[in-house]
């Protein structure tokens, strides 16, 4: 942040945000109330509120679907990011492997992989497998790129230092290359987590037995627009919570930055 920027009191900012968001919701509600637009088609804040109450408290079905989705996201992220980290480190350690694999990976990456989703569903079925596969494949490439980019950014002075101190290649990799890459890798992980969520929800929307995406598809087809909005609200809270928790971890680990 620019130090010359005027500092605003956090309370002023927060209360203004409440007013803006509250105002927008109020306008939406009012428009539906006086009948300028169809509440049945666009949804209505008070109806969304009721749907949230119904799904989260009365039946708790949203929690269950959320559980399915989160489980798939975590597995997809774990597999995608884990494999990407290992392969990325191999690429950084042995640039020759990267050179060989580069065209293949570039082609796979350029392909809009979400288009493969129906195929993956065909292969892995309507359960966990397919959505995990979609989410993991999205995460994998983003994290892989961040590892190779981060590993390339080693400071020339640090290379000189490690040579004159006589570090062996593997020591130099762990003590200099990897720590250098960590901030870039974290940015990749954060993005990768969002993509895991995206992939899983997309998979659920296309075809699935469980999950919030499946609810979105179902509620849309039965014209329960408020219900759709309620699920979308839950999803965006989940997205923010995921991003925030990784950010908090990052701040702890990267205090030196």
């Amino acid at each position: 942040m620019n130090p010359q920027e005027k500092r605003h009191s956090p309370w002023l900012v927060f209360s203004s945000q409440i007013i803006v968001v509250g105002g927008l919701i109020g306008i939406w509600e009012y428009i539906m109330y006086i009948g300028w637009a169809s509440a049945a088609l666009y949804g209505q804040p008070s109806g969304i509120w009721d749907a949230l109450g119904y799904g989260l408290i009365e039946t708790t079905e949203l929690w269950q679907e959320l559980g399915w989705t989160m489980l798939a996201v975590l597995i997809a992220f774990g597999i995608g990011a884990g494999v990407a980290l290992i392969i990325g480190m191999l690429f950084v350690l042995f640039p020759f492997i990267e050179k060989v694999m580069e065209p293949l990976l570039a082609a796979l990456n350029a392909m809009p992989r979400i288009a493969l989703a129906p195929l993956l569903i065909l292969w892995f079925g309507l359960g966990m497998g397919s959505k995990v596969a979609i989410g993991a494949s999205l995460t994998f490439f983003i994290v892989l790129q961040s590892v190779t980019a981060g590993g390339r950014g080693v400071n020339q002075d640090h290379i000189t230092l490690s040579q004159t101190l006589g570090l062996k290649p593997l020591e130099s990799f762990w003590k200099i290359t990897m720590p250098t890459a960590v901030p870039t890798v974290f940015a990749g992980l954060r993005l990768g987590l969002m993509y895991a969520l995206l992939g899983v929800v997309a998979g659920e929307i296309i075809a699935s037995e469980h999950g919030l995406g499946q609810r979105v598809a179902y509620l849309t087809s039965s014209f329960d627009i408020n219900g759709v909005w309620a699920v979308v609200c839950v999803l965006s809270v989940v997205g923010m919570a995921l991003s925030w928790s990784l950010g908090a971890l990052e701040n702890r680990l990267l205090r030196w930055q």
Partner: peptide
């Protein structure tokens, strides 16, 4: 042998 450069070349982490 020890080598010291113009820039400190400290490890920021």
């Amino acid at each position: 042998l020890g080598y010291m450069l113009a820039r400190d070349s400290l490890l920021p982490w």
